[in-house]
Design a protein around this nucleic acid. Structure first.
Lengths: 227, 227
DNA sequence: GACCGATTCAAACGATTGATTAATTCTTGG
DNA sequence: CCAAGAATTAATCAATCGTTTGAATCGGTC
């Protein structure tokens, strides 16, 4: 018995996955063709079926690959702030802030000067969160749920007076700003007439944080507007 | 000279456009096929090229058709609140509230029991606002811009202390909540485990209004949270 | 060196795509 | 009634899609 299932073919799989991330991020699932992906990976298009049992399989593998990356900051957040004691409220507040910051930096990875695969990976993740494919929504849920629950946990500490439904609406409003912003960069640039927008991500992150915390109704976290 | 360019073929155009709205809304531009659209309209697929010079032309015509509909509430908003006098601030506040309400009711037309074409039209509009096709972004801009400017005008009255960039960010945050919500209904239902969500649109509209006005920093418009 | 299975490849398959063609039907002005 | 142009049709085109096929190639064991 010879010929282990593992070989230098690992490289080929890797190259295909990275090329898939790039292409899927650019053109979406339907727009990206197997031949184009294979060409980018310097591989034969038949290998997609061979290694991943088809285009859909490659797409799922690409998503899995992204979620397990170190550069994905959201995936690295500490997921449990203290819930008791005098510091619980400050920790929850900090948790919300970090959630917003991590999401913004992940989603806007295009502004960090990192390798193109990393950049495309975040674009693809954003795209997938916006309109998840049926076959991949389970995978997405599995990886997103902990962070949703983390955010909800923080919100509950900050607003213990609200019902679960009201808290979910709060979370939706926060998340909506961030994801919509990412996916509507094109329109935003059109409206502002500034192709380089945003020049400074930290200003925007600060805005989303301020807006969200005021929206949450946490007056002590913010100076009231000056008028 | 005989045979006017207008005939009973107007009906065929109309049927093709409505079928296009239904199909494009369901499957997107790439996913929808000319043959399927034509079949739905009880017409021949060649008529798409004949009447609209191709698939892209039909898509643009479908968008134009939507924007000119009466059911599109956003398009019916009064676009200029009073800007001077003692009532200006109340009018601007009302303008923001109506903007949110009209957008919510338009985007969530699926919950109003109206005809399927109307419903699909709003879904397609939401889809297009989220990820506008290059060929149609100009058309979209032309119809959306007045309402963006109207919202910005209200915001400026309410927060005269902010810069244009800051006001744009505020508008982005408001719009983001609404559009993201519409496009992420699938995910929301997954998270909540409730396929009928939202049962009551008015509750949600109220939440978005409250969250946005608090986020804007208009304390007098709202009772502070009770804790 | 021969064998075996994993891997890679060029080529082709069947289906589907949007668009085109040429023939036909419909409508209408003269 | 009859051409003329508009409208509609079935049939086909060329291109592209994801997938399949069968042979070639590679690496490692006997």
């Amino acid at each position: 018995m010879n010929a282990q299932p593992t070989d230098a073919s690992f490289d080929t799989r890797q190259r295909l996955i990275e090329a898939a991330i790039l292409t899927f991020a650019e053109k979406g699932f339907d727009g990206a063709g197997i031949r184009e992906i294979a060409k980018r990976a310097n591989a034969n298009s038949a290998l997609v079926t061979y290694h991943f049992a088809g285009k859909e399989g490659l797409y799922l593998e690409a998503l899995r690959y992204i979620f397990n990356r170190k550069a994905c900051q959201v995936a690295q957040l500490a997921l449990r702030p203290r819930v008791e004691g005098p510091g619980a409220r400050e920790d929850a507040l900090q948790g919300v802030k970090e959630h917003i910051r991590a999401f913004m930096e992940d989603l806007m990875a295009c502004n960090r000067l990192i390798d193109p695969v990393e950049e495309a990976a975040m674009a693809l993740m954003a795209r997938e969160m916006q309109a998840p494919r049926p076959a991949s929504s389970a995978l997405l849920m599995e990886h997103i749920r902990p962070h949703v629950e983390h955010l909800m946990h923080c919100l509950r500490v900050l607003r213990p007076d609200l019902s679960t439904d009201e808290l979910l609406n709060m979370g939706l409003s926060i998340q909506g700003q961030l994801l919509y912003f990412r996916n509507s960069l094109g329109i935003s640039r059109l409206i502002r007439g500034n192709p380089d927008y945003p020049e400074d991500l930290s200003v925007l992150t600060q805005h989303f944080t301020d807006f969200s915390l005021r929206g949450l109704g946490i007056p002590e976290a913010f100076p009231q507007p000056r008028n």
